[in-house]
Design a protein around this nucleic acid. Sequence first.
DNA 1: AGCACGCCGACT
DNA 2: GTCGGCGTGCTC
Length: 801
Amino acid sequence: MIASVIVDVPAKQTDRAFEYRVPESMQGLIQRGMRVVVPFGPRKIQGFVVGFPEQSSFKQLKDIEELLDIVPVLNQELLSLGLWLSQETLCYQISAMQVMLPAAMKAKYEKVFDALVPIDDLPQTIIEHMDRNGQLTWKKGTENNLLRDLQTLVTSGEMELRYEVKSKAKKKKERIISLALSCDHAIEVIQSMSARSEKQKKVLHMFLQSENTPLPVKIVKEETGATSATIRTMIDRGFLEESQKEVYRDPFEHREFKRTKSFRLTDEQQQAIDPILDKVDDYSHETFLLHGVTGSGKTEVYLQTIDKVLQQDRQAIMLVPEISLTPQMVERFKGRFGDQVAVMHSGLSVGEKYDEWRKIHRKEVNVVVGARSAIFSPFERLGVIIIDEEHETSYKQEDTPRYHARDVAIERAKRHGCPVILGSATPSLETFARAQKGLYYLLTLSKRMNDQAMPHVSIVDMREELRKGNRSMFSRDLLEQLQLRLEKNEQTVLFLNKRGHSSFIMCRDCGYVMQCPYCEVSMTYHRHSEQMKCHYCGHQDRVPVICPECHSEHIRYFGTGTQKVEEELATLLPQARVIRMDVDTTSRKGSHEKLLAAFGEGQADILLGTQMIAKGLDFPNITLVGVLSADTMLHLPDFRSAEKTFQLLTQVSGRAGRHDKEGEVIIQTYTPEHYSIDLAKSQEFEAFYKHEMIMRKTGQYPPFYYMALITLSHENVLKVVAVCEEITSLIKQKLSSQVIILGPVASPIARIQNRYRYQCLIKYKQEQGLKPLLKSILNDYQSSKKDSITIQIDVQPYMMM
DNA sequence: AGCACGCCGACT
DNA sequence: GTCGGCGTGCTC
């Protein structure tokens, strides 16, 4: 029996199946989608079984070394999805498989020296560095400068070098004890015990009372006051038995979720859900765009759809942009579906993610709520896939495999015969265009639930403020409203668009801005460490006191970081209690939730933060939302900047007045006439859509064109430019005249970690030969050699940097 | 990705 | 003459 295996070596030359003999012992056990350990050259590596060919053209097949799973970790559907993913995103097959599994399952490799003779016969220098098992790792050997000696020992046959595959996936174990005696016997033992063995008696009584159910050691100790020593003795004397039980790490261990029931849907919601449920009933695929204004009750539509899916004994995936940011969403799902729900997000530890994944794999849950990678949850009978806030850019993975969760969702749903729901108040242009064309089924929720009024949005022209002599970051309007909230004891959210506005150092005399010496970006000033830092390569530097260019002393910290806003707030409104949320204050695990909870409990008047507070914030007492400068995002070199600005402003505005109190939104800007800001004021999505579509058409951008971005980087500028030109002309030659090629041009970030970056952007409508061409370009230019060009291809890129 | 093999320069 | 630099090709 022969198995073909995709090996864990991400390189172009190994991006194919290798064949192995299946040893007798594994036959009847081994299945496609299981992980194995195989010999590969001199080492041992992990691989995935993908098939069982009848015969092999290869003469000298090696045996599979070890079978790592009892149940396949990738089912048939995921295996074929992996192949699709690798073709679609031009990545290696092994990378596609790896991305579908939790990080904990990625194999680790270690080289170990093992003694072949009695350990005492080895030199003392070696012995003293060995571990208990008489092994010495390669790493330790290098650290202690023993490689020479080890080499001699290996050649003389006294030691051997082995390549080990280590699994990082550790299952959490708990020590369990149970009675090793029959109940009658235990009673006898108690009676025969001396009076001094009081603790032991107590333990035995405990087991008799619980009818000898095995109990965790921890519990027994707490209940009886017995110590580890007591229990040890009892085990030694044969009264108790010890075993290990696997337990799940529960990220929500100390949280109670109130059970909730379905709400009655409004007419509008009912009209939206009916066509979805029809598709669920038919086991047929359809992509729905659920376009609903903020507060229109999209979530209830999701919940009731999932309810239906569960009734049919099927499963559901619900994607959210970044779940740790929306504990309220977790709450709603756990509340409705209880322990049927697994939660997957980046805030979990590797082990916690692994445990949540295993709950799905073992069919212990039927619903997954999670971020992007949750789209690969190993369900076998999907009934619906929901993507909330469909327009969010975090659904696109920015490193290989560069997939978009939306595309994967639709591909999976086709295979399972189930609907996809894309929900948003501000759908991406691509999605809305598809809905308009009839490729997606458009569902609209135009009314807010409970007839809440939409918040009142006003725009403040900051140029006008400046003319009036107001040089502060706060317009008079905003300050006035802020004061009003303080008096009324209501809350405010202040939103600062961080991109392009983080604090940098600038010389007021000559305009010098401190740049990273290795990357073409300004360095950011970090207050708490009093250092300059590069966000791309992490390079740190001292804060300059005099300008290195003109030696002026007027060099200072510039820009509007959240810290600076906080300081200004403290001067303007000293009585206000402010909670600041940014990278600095939320870096510790769980601090996010804590800060939000504190704000929810009314411990502060103002919540000040960046992007991260734009989502999922839903507190009744927020009646004012201020956007300090709406246009920082608008000037980024990105054709989606207007779309992103509109989405963000709409999103942020939705935070105000979600309950019975009326909300007020103030947007400060230097370009009030820009359509994305003007239309965000009136929250007219369709008007914005029409305008933006015209811009995209003239600019020849998506959704009118598809795109592919090739980025090259190398230390030598000339080399990058030369290769980029070569590739560009090759593309021009091979593709049709319909194709528009921009490049070679320097990337918006022209240098990172001292490597110059050039790119070539391909815009196309229909191009059969594109994928094969890109694949061959990768093949020709991608190489593992050092000092060679790095090539990166992103199909449908989101970040143009 | 590793690792062995193999071909050239600078050393005891 | 050999040691060691890294460029090339292979791994079932």
